[in-house]
């Protein structure tokens, strides 16, 4: 939701990035204020997932220009874990499976790292168990997932719910959800979207990276940005997603590019 008095959380200016010498991002501009929900849409290869990973600090991408300011800090100076502790969360398109590490062990480790950052007490396994079971109810997750290895043999929907569970535990300032809707059936999509909506509040912001308009029926964005060839070429309100659904991405290309996020 757009609030008049909200402050800027993330300020991206002319961000350029390459991978293996190939330029993917060619000058991204984006301003995200607290309370807002943004959707970044675009075709495959437009650079949306790259943008998400660059914000989270993936080492494969080299920043060749521009700035990213996060609550007054230069985000590009921070290691991935420092970004996470500062309040950046990336919901992965393909969450990684880690055989041998129990999900509850992993979740508690991540949670306690965040607790230290928040100057709060770490939780012991019993205390954490109570907390995580409560959070799992929001996502209609079976507690059996706590004892299984992280994401191992989880279905696509279960993996995405596990991502949102992590988001709920880490309580980030900005959550970037990369294709969280892909591979989900309609029930799983409803559950995941419901979780995201419940976690959104006046103090945080959400960036949905998606190919399809479908998820935006459940999570209503304040801004929709269209990415094309490494740039944001159009920005509008939630109705822009419906126009895209109706006319296709080619429709954007004949329109005049606008300055994003303003």
């Amino acid at each position: 939701m757009i609030y008049q008095d909200s402050k800027v959380l993330l300020e991206v200016r002319e961000l350029c990035a390459t991978v293996n010498g190939i330029t993917i991002l060619k000058g991204i501009n984006l301003t995200v204020k607290s309370g807002e929900i943004h959707a970044i849409m675009g075709t495959n290869g437009s650079g949306k997932s790259t943008f998400a990973k660059v914000i989270a600090g993936h080492a494969d991408y080299e920043i060749t220009g521009g700035t990213v300011d996060f609550e007054g800090k230069n985000l590009l100076d921070l290691a991935p874990e420092e970004r996470a502790r500062a309040g950046i969360f990336l919901g992965f398109q393909y969450p990684i499976e880690i055989p041998g590490v129990a999900n509850n062990q992993f979740l508690r480790l991540a949670y306690n790292t965040a607790q230290i950052q928040r100057n709060k007490d770490e939780l012991d396994p019993l205390e954490f168990d109570d907390l995580v079971r409560e959070k799992m109810k929001l996502l209609e997750m079976n507690p059996d997932f706590l004892d299984r290895s992280v994401n191992e043999n989880f279905s696509g929907g279960e993996k995405k719910r596990n991502e949102i569970l992590q988001m709920s535990l880490l309580d980030p300032r900005i959550a970037i959800l990369d294709e969280t809707d892909s591979g989900l059936d309609i029930d799983a999509l409803r559950i995941v979207a419901n979780g995201v909506n419940q976690l959104a509040n006046k103090g945080n912001a959400t960036i949905l990276v998606t190919h399809y308009q479908r998820m935006l029926n459940y999570i209503v964005p304040d801004y929709v940005h269209v990415m094309e060839s490494g740039r944001i070429v159009k920005t509008g309100g939630k109705e822009l997603a419906l126009d895209l659904e109706k006319h296709g991405y080619d429709w954007v290309n004949v329109e005049q590019p606008t300055t994003a996020g303003t």
Binding site: A56, P80, E81, F89, P95, I96, F106, A110, T113
Partner: peptide, 9 residues
């Protein structure tokens, strides 16, 4: 990277 993105060093 996945673990680091969750705040682990």
């Amino acid at each position: 990277f996945y673990l680091r993105s969750r705040g682990l060093s």
